[in-house]
Design a protein around this nucleic acid. Structure first.
Length: 807
RNA sequence: GCGGGCGUGGCGGAAUGGCAGACGCGCCGGAUUUAGGUUCCGGUGCCGAAAGGUGUAAGAGUUCAAGUCUCUUCGUCCGCACCA
């Protein structure tokens, strides 16, 4: 009798319906069981729908989630929609459809596509950031941040995207252009909502030591936070009251400071305007610097520019020497104090500047092979201080301590830690986002809305086009804007900026724990049970955006007692991109986008899932291959047809025992390490072997189906049912391997003569290194390989090889 | 510029310092088939008819043994990029 053809188009919808109806993947409310919380980044439901890049991380964590359930864990595995944001709004404007309608349609399309892939999400916990029942709590968290002084509004230069007509966070500016649309970013001074993420710089840094993130994620976050240790030092100005305070990481080189530089925006310039002799030149330089975009400024960083402040002299506090003061745009106004002491002998940038403008270069740290006139000596390990008075003879590290102690004693400065991290620009002048629940009252200032009045609903506006004046389209809604002050009852105005897209995604994983709660963002008991997330996978592009932001919010919620753990995610991994078949990034404009719907129509969701995992190392970018995907379908066909080869047997057959146990171990271990490609290769090897034998017994088939089910669940359920193997696969236990049966009694090892393979011999697996080296050389087949030559040395590596060194 | 990763067949890629190229794609051959974008079996790094030789970006080194460790060079990808 022969089984019919494998027809994924029939069995996949069947099992998807079955799982849904039987609530197969509903997280259990029973908090006594061990839990496992796996998380993927919830998608932004764009108009284009899914491409084959989406299922890669989704399948990977679906495999982990399905395996964990079979291992007995209560698993929380959810999906939701990060649905506020610019592309939807832009699409809505272009097509004259309300963003909420666009969002609803896109979500329905996404959900349909995702369900066709057979992921084991608990759909009863779906969240949507644009749902007022959800963003009520996004606004609530904002109010807590506001009440704790972590949300504030301030006048400051911001990044302005000329195309989105919207401010951007520093994290959204890449190489001087908008990370979303690639348009140039210019600086504008605006009154902006900010979140004080800098207050959490050290906590965010320290927290990284407590979690299991892949190295490149930790490194990138550490770089972004950018902690440095040094000192702030005051430099007096000759004949003036004012001082210049600088930040330096090399206070040990203070004796080598031969000039100072302040940023073009430094406030001192205006204060000293009447003392600066070349003010015209200075003003011209300031104007030039202000005109440059970030992009131009970094582009031109090879050639230093600057202007001396004529008539101004500073005094080096350690030796009393008068030194000139310059302005230059290589000193940033936003870092440290916006002023530096320049030590050209031991800082490359200062060295370049000094060379260009003929400023003196004085060596204060010795140890360089080259003269400091030829090259700056920046080593901090081996250098010894010279020409530095009381610091002479000290190593750099010791000199730092000594000079800081001296500065502090004299009241000239103190130890200081600095971070590159800047506060988070938190407002957008666009329509499709969470309204900021703040009321501006002429009498009371900025007043938070009463929490019981949340959510503050987004008004239904007629026109949501962005405006050129930098105001949100909501500002035109005078009825909505006008309100009464909750404090004094007087007439007041609502804040009209909305929150950035990163707001809703900064806490969605908390909502999954208790998605329908209308009293709190999530019940504390549910949070205590499910949190932290055990395994979070997402894109590298979110490392210094969503991942950092959500860690900040979570640590804040921990500090105010809303959640019970400081860190939200225990483990973070990252997937590689799926490239187009031509090796280029998949994009509509390149015309190389592969739509999963079409792939499913051709080979089925199970084969697609399998190929997504088999295509290569999970963390690498891999080009799509239609033929490669078809190969996975061929493999599933073979698994399907094994039904015809099935013979009796409730235990592994003796000649299959070792391979079966090896496969269980390999698949189990490789899934944990995200080495899905080699796990699948091992299952292919097993199936090839079964075909060579011409049969499979029930025990072997059952095991294969259990191992394969996390990757390709529908086909496994179907065969399982057809073979009458009992309750569905997802309710079965994960197979275990038996250490006893991982190796055969005898194993073939290579015989090398002087490191070259010359033959093979069979050796008992339990033969030790010592035994082998003594006994194997006595064997006739080994002697024959040695011949007349004399043995110098014998190396036996059990299970691997025998190497004979001869002369 | 600085820091880190990577470099293996025609392609995607395997390999705790221990038989390089698992597995898949592609290709070649055989069988089944009216037919094949089916299935099954076999082959497939390169040179060579074979014996054999040779081979993991290039060059050196350590080792009985190197794709794997060390150094130099080249290429490539990523991170940081005037952060004092």
């Amino acid at each position: 009798m022969s089984v019919g053809p494998y027809a994924p188009e029939k069995i996949e919808p069947k099992w998807q319906k079955y799982w849904l109806e039987h609530e197969a993947f509903k997280a259990d409310e029973d908090h006594a069981k061990p839990k496992f919380y796996s998380l993927i980044e919830f998608p932004y439901p764009s108009g284009q729908g899914l491409h084959v890049g989406h299922p890669r991380p989704y399948t990977a964590l679906d495999i982990v989630a399905r395996k964990r359930r079979m291992e007995g864990y209560n698993v929380l595995h959810c999906i939701g929609w990060d649905a506020f944001g610019l592309p939807t709004e832009n699409y809505a404007i272009k097509n004259h459809i309300h963003p909420s309608v666009v969002t609803r349609d896109n979500i329905n399309h996404f959900r349909e596509q995702i369900q066709k892939l057979g992921f084991s999400f608990d759909y009863s916990r779906e969240v949507n950031t644009t749902d007022p029942g959800y963003y009520k709590w996004t606004q609530w968290i904002f109010l807590q941040l506001f009440k704790h002084g972590l949300a504030y509004k301030t006048e400051m230069p911001i990044n302005w995207c000329t195309s989105c007509k919207c401010v951007l966070a520093n994290e959204e500016v890449v190489d001087g252009v908008c990370e979303r649309c690639g348009s140039p970013v210019v600086h504008k001074v605006k009154n902006q909502w900010m979140l004080r993420i800098t207050a959490y710089a050290q906590k965010l840094l320290d927290g990284l030591d407590e979690v299991d993130y892949i190295d490149r994620v930790k490194t990138q976050q550490r770089n972004w936070i950018g902690r440095s240790e040094g000192a702030e030092v005051d430099f007096a100005l000759k004949g003036l009251e004012e001082k210049i305070r600088v930040y330096t990481t090399r206070p040990d080189t203070l004796f080598g400071a031969t000039y100072m530089v302040i940023s073009p925006e430094h406030s001192l310039i205006d204060k000293l305007a009447d003392r600066i002799l070349n003010m015209d030149e200075v003003r011209a330089y300031q104007a030039e610097a202000a005109r440059k975009s970030d992009f131009e400024r970094t582009e031109m960083n090879k050639d230093k520019t600057g202007v001396p402040l004529k008539g101004i002299q500073a005094v080096n506090p350690v030796n009393g020497e008068a030194i000139p003061v310059w302005i230059s745009d290589y000193v940033l106004t936003t870092y440290g104090t916006g002023a530096i002491m320049a030590v050209p002998a031991h800082d490359t940038r200062d060295w370049e500047f000094a060379k260009k403008f003929g400023l003196p270069i004085v060596e204060v740290v010795s140890g360089s092979e080259k003269s400091v006139q030829e090259e700056a000596y920046t080593d901090v390990q081996d250098g010894i201080l010279v020409h530095s008075g009381f610091l002479d003879g000290l190593k750099v590290a010791d000199a730092k301590k000594a000079i800081i102690a001296w500065l502090e004693e004299k009241g000239l400065g103190e130890k200081k830690v600095n971070y590159k991290l800047r506060d988070w620009v938190f407002a957008r002048q666009r329509y499709w986002g969470e309204p900021i629940p703040i009321i501006h009252c002429a009498k009371c200032g900025m007043v938070p809305m009463d929490e019981k009045d949340l959510p503050l609903l987004l008004p239904n506006v007629e026109h949501y086009e962005p405006t050129d004046d930098g105001e949100s389209p909501i500002a035109r809604m005078t009825d909505w804007v006008k309100c009464t002050c909750p404090k004094c009852g007087g007439e007041a105005r609502r804040e009209t900026d909305t929150m950035p897209q990163w707001a809703g995604s900064s806490w969605y994983f908390l909502r999954y724990c208790d998605p329908h709660n209308d009293k709190v963002l999530a019940d504390r008991k549910a949070l205590d049970y499910w949190m932290p997330v055990d395994w979070y996978n997402g894109g590298m592009e979110h490392t210094t955006l969503h991942l950092l932001y959500s860690r900040f919010w979570h640590r804040f919620l921990y500090d105010i007692g809303v959640v019970g753990t400081p860190e939200p995610y225990m483990k973070r991994t990252s997937h590689g991109m799926v490239l187009g078949e031509n090796g280029e990034k998949m994009s509509k404009s390149r015309g190389n986008v592969v739509n999963p719907d079409e792939t499913i129509a051709e080979i089925g969701a199970d084969a697609l899932r399998m190929y997504e995992m088999f295509m290569g190392a999970f963390d690498q970018a891999i080009p799509w291959s239609t033929n490669g995907a078809r190969g996975c379908r061929k493999f599933l066909d073979r698994v399907w047809r094994l039904q015809d080869l099935c013979v009796a047997g409730d235990e592994f057959r003796p000649d299959m025992r070792v391979l079966m146990n090896q496969t269980i171990r390999k698949v189990s271990e490789d899934f944990e390490k995200m080495k899905f490609n080699t796990a699948i290769a091992q299952m292919m090897t097993l199936v090839n072997t079964l075909y060579q034998k011409g049969s499979v017994c029930h025990a072997e088939y059952r095991t294969l189906l259990l191992l394969l089910s996390p990757v390709s669940p529908h086909i496994c359920e179907e065969i399982w049912q057809q073979m009458g193997y009992g309750a569905p696969v997802y309710t079965q236990s994960w197979p275990r391997w038996d250490e006893k049966y991982l190796t055969e009694d005898e194993k073939e090892v290579a015989v090398q003569i002087n490191g070259k393979v010359k033959g093979k011999i069979m050796v008992p697996v339990d033969m030790t290194k010592e035994q082998g080296e003594k006994e194997l050389v006595l064997r006739e087949d080994v002697k024959a390989l040695v011949g007349e030559r004399s043995l110098v040395k014998v190396i036996f590596v059990p299970g691997r090889l025998l190497n004979l060194v001869v002369k």
